[in-house]
Amino acid sequence: MMSAINWPGVWAIFHHEMMRFFRTIMQSLLSPVVSTTLYFVVFGAAIGGRIQSVEGVPYGAFIVPGLMMLTILQQSVSNASFGIYFPKFSGTIYEYLVSPVGWIEVTMGFVGAAAAKSMMIALVILLTSFFFVGVHILHPFWMLAFLFLTALGFSLLGFIIGLWAKSFEQLQLVPMMVITPLVFLGGAFYSANMLPPFWEGVAKLNPVLYLISGFRWSFFGLADVPVGVSLVAVAIMVGVCLAIIRWIFATGWRLRE
């Protein structure tokens, strides 16, 4: 049956999730700011002393998009997975299952809030970086577009992880074992072109490389892979995740007995 989307339901979930974020706004924003500062000190100052510039961009500025991507990936996954896992854990998930909200409303509410939070944090990191380096953004529109699509894609992924997880350990497993390595190996702090040819080939199997590359292009106009490929990669990710979530709600997998 096709029926209209329950917008008040979407808003209720979104608002509820955002309020939780604002209740702990200091922790939410402080820790990424502190860790960014540390990255600048360690990578920017220590390594930047040796690597003057990458493809004409000062190293300190070069790592800004990578840092933002690192944060947005981690935050999106952890916000979205925790957002849906917590009601499962506390038992309040029943409310979502008995009320007239379907996968569309639940996904828009939870994933929308997770993506909004991580975008806010990423923008705070950008502001923080202005204190350390001069960053000029060549294509602000595309920068925001990449930011949004990436936040969306990885919030969807986090949402799936939260639906799948049966324990807090599982909840942290994927971000720790998969996301963080992919980001570090995805060229957050270097250009894939700096790798030997074989490893450059391996690196290009990493989907995160395409995101970081596209995002970096929006800042500096240079990319490891064509920008169009980056956009297609993130669009595919969004589509696949949506299909999986739809399947989960249709079958009730790990939701309904």
Binding site: N6, E95, S99
Partner: peptide
């Protein structure tokens, strides 16, 4: 209030 919203009510 949250529950009311979930049910699509203002």
């Amino acid at each position: 209030r949250f529950t009311r919203g979930l049910y699509g009510e203002g």
